[in-house]
């Protein structure tokens, strides 16, 4: 279990994290969602002791992470930044990682490289944005660490490779249960993959709950503007949008006594997220 206790991080005049308290349980897949600059990467870097908090602490399996090699060995962070020597070739880094991480699954790393058509003889610096992400994700997923933290793992990946990566994540998870934290802003894509949802915004935790609970906490209703307005009158409405005489309303609660002129569908996670994290910007 990863426990984040009252963690605050200040960079000069910016508060990147503001008194964050969060728990990541064992053997679950988490989605860490937030807009650009919300504090996702800072949080992952603090968990893995790459950045020090201004206040608060992080415990992994009950032990403090700061300067604790044993605890740090339980975690593997795939970072947006590249910490690998750029002149090295992919296969050299696989072999090198295998020496330093006793649980590293070298065979699977080469198999996955093959699946993604990642050229293992290529130098790290020669990889495209997409293949750099794939390469780092493979190393992280094959680390077999108890806690795998993936920071924007689908950055620069095309639709086919994103699809394959989600399948690979689920396949690795099926082989050995572990905690996987995926930070992303591509919400709709990960919503079926993750079990738990954490939304952070402006350095604060806005929401932590099971994905399914969140999805069943409300619904979407569609129909003629007048009919929708009549139905949502007095209800807890998250947001609405209109187009060509029709109206969509995102409503909290369970749909009840819906007239046949209206259509009910699931809550749209992306819409909920935009609404929750909207700082009154836009057209």
């Amino acid at each position: 279990m990863i426990e984040i206790k009252n963690v605050t991080k200040d960079y000069k005049d910016v508060r990147a994290l503001d008194n964050v308290t969060l728990t990541f349980e064992e053997n679950k897949i988490y989605g860490l969602l937030g807009r650009n600059g919300a504090g996702k990467s800072t949080l992952l870097n603090i968990i893995t002791d790459k950045v020090f908090p201004s206040q608060g602490e992080v415990l992994v399996d009950g032990e403090k992470v700061s300067n604790n090699d044993e605890v740090l060995g339980k975690m593997f962070l795939m970072n947006e930044k590249n910490y690998y020597p750029e002149a090295m070739k992919v296969y050299e880094i696989f072999n090198w990682t295998d020496k330093f991480y006793p649980d590293f699954d070298l065979v699977s790393a080469f198999e996955l490289a093959e699946k993604f058509k990642l050229n293992t003889k290529s130098r790290v610096k020669a990889l495209s944005t997409g293949y750099a992400s794939i390469f780092k994700a493979i190393v992280a997923l094959c680390s077999n660490a108890k806690y795998i933290l993936l920071d924007e793992p689908v950055l620069g990946l095309d639709a086919n490779h994103r699809d394959l990566l989600y399948k690979v994540i689920l396949d690795r998870y099926a082989t050995v249960r572990r905690t996987i934290i995926i930070s992303t802003h591509l919400i709709e894509e990960v919503s079926s993959v993750i079990e738990e949802l954490v939304i952070i915004h402006n350095g604060k935790v806005l929401l932590q709950d099971s994905c399914e609970k969140v999805l069943s906490s409300g619904f979407t209703i569609t129909g003629k503007i007048q009919d929708v307005d009549e139905y949502i009158n007095g209800k807890d409405v998250i947001s609405t949008e209109t187009f060509g005489g029709l109206k969509n309303a995102y409503v909290k609660g369970k749909p009840q006594n819906v007239p046949s002129s209206l259509e009910v569908t699931k809550l749209d996670l992306q819409k909920l997220f935009i609404q929750l994290t909207n700082d009154k910007e836009g057209l």
């Binding site: 699809d163 399948k167 689920l170 079990e195 399914e212």
Partner: peptide, 15 residues
């Protein structure tokens, strides 16, 4: 199996 459904449909095994 649960794993086959999970991977083929890209859904969490708990689902």
């Amino acid at each position: 199996s649960i794993t086959e459904f999970s991977v083929a449909c890209k859904i969490n095994p708990a689902t």
